[in-house]
Design a protein around this nucleic acid. Sequence first.
DNA 1: TTGATACTGTAGCATTGACTTAAGTATTGA
DNA 2: TCAATACTTAAGTCAATGCTACAGTATCAA
Lengths: 114, 114
Amino acid sequence: MLQYQAQPLDLAFQALSDPGRRAMVERLSRGPASVSELAEPLPMTLSAVVQHLKILEEAGLVSSRKTGRVRTCTLEIAAMTKVESWIAERKRFWNQQYDQLETYLSENSQEESH
Amino acid sequence: MLQYQAQPLDLAFQALSDPGRRAMVERLSRGPASVSELAEPLPMTLSAVVQHLKILEEAGLVSSRKTGRVRTCTLEIAAMTKVESWIAERKRFWNQQYDQLETYLSENSQEESH
DNA sequence: TTGATACTGTAGCATTGACTTAAGTATTGA
DNA sequence: TCAATACTTAAGTCAATGCTACAGTATCAA
């Protein structure tokens, strides 16, 4: 780890790096679900799912609320957007320097061609 | 791990989950760089950077080519887009069900209000 | 040809991560 | 009240990660 104090983005990327947790996010993108509902399609114990859930919640990607004995989980779209934006930013930078190269090439094409 | 045969998306999310590797991606989004240039701002040995680089390459996020004794690394925007798209998809699903709820609420507001 | 540069590759090691099992605690429904 | 349900928490295990150190190899420059 580069920084000892984990940044929000760190936690989010970290959380999404596990296929099981991404499966949970996929499920939650279709609507809220209970812990058992999240666990149902996954090849692991309820206990493991609860642990994954905690990681998703700490990353801000999921929030949950307990009513009676059922905990209902919801996807937090804002955290998803933050991750999306980080990537979009990198792409923007990359396209910028690519455009600059194209500009350079078109401006110097006559002089540079033999 | 949920699946033994790692899917491309797995590798990409996995690769981006490390702050050091994300720093390398940030650097490469501003243009190609040599291994030493990538290593320069990072608080780790060249050896560690090479190992991170391998992970980024296996995830398809970075490509590199050696000329003489210098390896030049480039960001692969297509892989970045795949990650971005996965998140965009989840957001789309989430918005869909949210819209459906709103539609339901507005359609039933007269009957449901006391 | 010789020393510096720019990696490359491997071994080892401490930590973290992804589980399971097992033993709880509230809630609910009969 | 009492069993089933829906989690919750704590160990403990074992593999994967993120390093470092160290020993190369292949250029390049003088």
